[in-house]
Simulated assay, not measured.
Amino acid sequence: MFLRSLLAPSFLGVSLAAATFSGMITTGYASAAIPAPTVPLKLMTVAVQGNHQVPTADILQAFGYHAGDTVTRNDLAAAQKRVGALYSSRNVGASLGEQMKISDKGISVKLILEEQAAGAAAQPTALVLDKVEFQGNRKVTTAELEAATKLRAGGPVSNEQLSADQQAIQALYKSKNVGASFQPQATYPNHDQHVVLIWQIHEQDKSAN
């Protein structure tokens, strides 16, 4: 993920690795509701797990935020990119997951790294999509969303395909005059190259505008 630019702020935590990073950058949330990307939150804690070749102090310095700082999810996306750039500069292959726990207006972050063995050649990793789900859509049917998007179970998945599907979903909602925000969440539950993608859709009522 980090060795290419992030797709868009709404794609926090969903992006695919290339070059030095392998696997998928994932973001897990423990929260009743996911705030918008620009909502300010108080950073409660930052933890790092699984790093051996790159010191924790260096990772935290690259991350750039500390407990007590005010951050948005957009800020955290940029911080993830900086950690990825750090690993690239050290020529250390790794996959990176980020767990977030959101409570009220506070957020706790844990960076979870799986580093390659020193000297191992990093290769781009082919990812296979096992499942695609749409959650939260009420005004646009799942059948309409499936018809508008291209990613299918059993096929490959890439940053470019994710971006194209996001744009297709946005265009579909716009054509129906329905406001919505989209939060894709990607996981690989078997810890291999098989991915589950869930589109979390937060529709807006016209009366709320």
Rank of each mutant, 00 (worst) to 15 (best):
R90T: 09
Q123D: 11
L172A: 00
P37H: 00
P40C: 02
V48F: 06
A78V: 11
V195E: 08
K42H: 01
E160H: 05
T56M: 03
V132A: 01
I198F: 01
A117K: 14
D104Q: 15
S95T: 15
A30N: 07
A208S: 12
T149W: 03
A57L: 13
E114Y: 11
A148H: 10
T142A: 09
K139R: 14
A57C: 05
T142E: 15
Q161I: 08
P184Y: 04
Q99D: 14
L96Y: 01
A67S: 15
L113V: 14
I102L: 11
P9K: 06
A126H: 09
G93Q: 03
S108N: 04
Y87D: 02
S95N: 13
P55E: 00
L60C: 09
S88V: 09
A36V: 12
V157D: 01
P189I: 14
S88Q: 14
V109C: 00
V46L: 07
A67N: 11
L151Q: 06
L12C: 08
V128R: 03
M24S: 09
S163Y: 09
A78T: 07
A117I: 07
G136N: 02
H191P: 04
I169N: 00
A171P: 08
G97K: 11
K206A: 13
A208I: 13
Q53S: 03
A186F: 12
N209Q: 12
A168G: 08
S207A: 03
Q200H: 15
L151M: 15
Y65T: 01
K206F: 06
N177A: 14
A79N: 02
L86A: 02
Q166N: 12
L197I: 12
A62H: 08
I25W: 11
M24T: 14
L127N: 02
V39M: 05
A8M: 03
A164C: 07
A120L: 11
F182H: 06
T20S: 02
M24L: 15
M1L: 08
L113P: 08
V71N: 00
G23E: 02
A180G: 09
F63W: 15
I25V: 14
T70M: 10
S163E: 07
K150F: 06
A36M: 01
Q80E: 13
E160T: 13
T125M: 13
